[in-house]
């Protein structure tokens, strides 16, 4: 039973990582930028949620009304910058690493390097949990899983069913020809990057709800999030969710069967094997 609890809790945790991976994967797959600044936006959104909720007394979930549009703007502006300077895939990685380091420093200067935690009066979720039989799930992880599923499904629907989504797919497959048929890649790219930014705001909000904030959190996320992006298939949104659940459940199980410290070893062995045998991810899309 402890294994089942570990696997399911792990999967729920993994869905939060999938939510972080979503925006990274979309930008990488469709815009050919590896945007580490995505982690900076998540971190910043986390601290803004904390700040807004503590200063106004609002529920942390309500702060999304401010942070999502703000991060949409930040994401869109960064993409405009990449476009303006015609930044290559590799250079985007370096530049955005710089942006991440700067953000971490700024966050440290404003909020210090100490742990920050929302007081329990404004964050009732931290104490709640849901019992299913003998299994118990903390409310924050359930919230994370709920948001992850909703955003992934929304992204998949937009990509598959709307004109703009199909235009983005076309753009991901052949930029020049997509442009030749009237697809304005700058506009679409900016909108996509904005949407990725808004998803970073949602992910960021979930950290103060679930626990404590420290400025160096991004460095804990990067490895696992990249693993999920690659296992899920770059640009494959549903694949990202499956990969998040799989990685989370695996880490959870490994942690109780062996020790928590062996989880990264197992997860990254999976990534290496996947890159060798399934270079397009574990969940290849039709035709791709």
């Amino acid at each position: 039973m402890i294994e089942l609890q570990a696997a399911v809790s792990g999967a729920l945790n993994g869905s939060l990582y999938a939510l972080m991976a979503l925006g990274l994967s979309l930008a990488w797959g469709f815009l050919k930028v590896i945007n580490l600044a995505h982690f900076a936006m998540i971190l910043l959104a986390g601290y803004l949620t904390f700040e807004l909720a503590t200063s106004t007394g609002l529920s942390p979930i309500a702060t999304i009304v401010v942070t999502a549009p703000l991060m949409f703007l930040v994401g869109a502006l960064i993409q405009l910058g990449y476009e303006r300077f015609d930044v290559s895939e590799l250079n985007s990685l370096l530049i955005s690493y710089g942006l991440l380091i700067i953000t971490v420093q700024v966050v440290t200067n404003i909020w210090t390097a100490d742990f920050q935690r929302l007081p329990s009066e404004i964050n009732p979720f931290s104490a709640e949990s849901l019992a299913v039989g003998s299994l118990r799930f903390p409310m924050p992880t359930l919230l994370a899983a709920g948001f992850a599923v909703v955003l992934v499904v929304a992204a998949a629907l937009v990509l598959g069913r709307t004109y703009a989504g199909r235009a983005l797919q076309a753009f991901g497959q052949d930029r020049e020809i997509a442009s030749a048929f009237g697809i304005d890649h700058r506009l679409l790219g900016v909108l996509l990057a904005g949407a990725a930014g808004a998803s970073a705001a949602v992910a960021g909000m979930l950290f103060p709800i679930g626990g404590t904030l420290t400025p160096d959190l991004p460095f804990e996320w990067i490895g696992l999030v990249f693993a999920i992006v690659i296992l899920g298939g770059i640009g494959n949104v549903t694949g990202t969710l499956y990969a998040g659940l799989l990685v989370g459940a695996t880490s959870g199980l490994v942690a109780v069967i062996w020790t928590p410290s062996t989880s990264p070893f197992v997860v990254f062995s999976l990534v290496v094997l996947a890159l060798v045998f399934r270079p397009k991810g574990l969940f290849p899309q039709k035709g791709g």
């Binding site: 797919q169 076309a170 497959q173 997509a178 442009s179 030749a180 048929f181 009237g182 697809i183 035709g287």
Partner: peptide, 24 residues
């Protein structure tokens, strides 16, 4: 005029090597 405006002006291309959107 950039590519995405040319098609509105009435020009279309059948590119060398076809260059379809293969997974659509």
């Amino acid at each position: 005029t950039p590519g995405h405006r040319m098609c509105r002006a009435g020009v279309a291309i059948v590119p060398e090597g076809r260059r379809l959107f293969p997974s659509m």
